Amino acid sequence: MEKEFTTRSPEETIALGEKIAAELTAGDVLCLDGELGAGKTHFVKGMAKAYGIDSTEVHSPTFTLINEYSGTKMLYHFDCYRMESPKEAVEIGAEEYFYGDGISVIEWPGRIEPLLPLDAIWISIEVPNRRTRKFVIRKRGS
C-alpha cells in the first residue's frame, strides 16, 4: 500500500518527517530516495525532532557516511551518496545498525540496496517545482 504527501515548504517537510517518525519502532529502516536538494535532510530533521533531538544538530553525513543521534529513540542517519558499492556499507557495520535498537534512515539507498532489509520502508521524493515536494511512501517490493 502506498501513501502520498505533498509539502510546500521546508517547514512542512520537517513536520512530515516528525509525523512519520512517530509511527516508527526500533529496528525500522527508512530509505529516502530523491535527487540532490529534494529535502531528504529536512525530512530527517523532522524525524530527529520527534525523538527529542535538536534538529539544528542534524546534517547530511555525506563525508562521515553515518551520524548517530541520541534521543527518546536512537536515530542512525546514513548518506550513501559517495559509496561505490554495498561492500563499503558492510565495512562500516551498516547491517548492525539496520537490525539494531534504533531507527535507520538512509539517503541514497539504491547504492546499498542488496543489504537493506526486505521490510524497509521506501520514501520517494519528487520535486515538481522549486517549492513543492511529493513524498510517496511504500514498503520495499510493493
Rank of each mutant, 00 (worst) to 15 (best):
S55F: 12
L24A: 06
A48R: 04
E57H: 11
A21L: 02
C31L: 15
N67H: 15
K45W: 06
Y51L: 04
N67K: 10
G71P: 02
M47Q: 02
A50C: 07
E23R: 12
K73Y: 11
I20D: 10
E57I: 03
H42P: 00
L32V: 01
T72C: 05
T56Q: 13
G39N: 04
C31E: 07
I66L: 15
G27S: 10
M47G: 02
M47W: 02
A48Y: 11
K40M: 08
G34Y: 09
D28C: 12
T25E: 15
Y69N: 05
T62S: 15
T41W: 13
G27P: 06
P61H: 06
A21G: 00
S60N: 07
S70D: 13
L24T: 03
T41M: 11
K19E: 14
A22E: 14
D28P: 04
G27R: 10
T62C: 09
S60Q: 08
V44S: 10
D33Q: 14
L36Y: 13
V29I: 05
T72E: 15
A38H: 07
T72L: 10
G27V: 04
E68K: 12
T56S: 14
F43C: 05
L36F: 15
T41V: 09
F43P: 01
E23Q: 14
A38W: 06
N67I: 03
S55M: 14
L24F: 13
T72Q: 12
D28N: 15
I53S: 11
D54Q: 09
G52E: 13
E57L: 14
S55R: 13
A38L: 05
F63D: 04
Y69I: 00
A26L: 05
T64M: 10
D54W: 08
D54G: 03
G27I: 04
G34L: 06
P61F: 08
K40L: 09
G39I: 02
M47E: 03
I66Y: 11
E68A: 10
G34M: 07
L32M: 11
P61K: 04
F43E: 07
S70T: 13
N67A: 12
K49N: 13
G71S: 05
A50D: 02
T64F: 08
K40D: 09
T64H: 08
T56F: 11
K19W: 02
L30A: 04
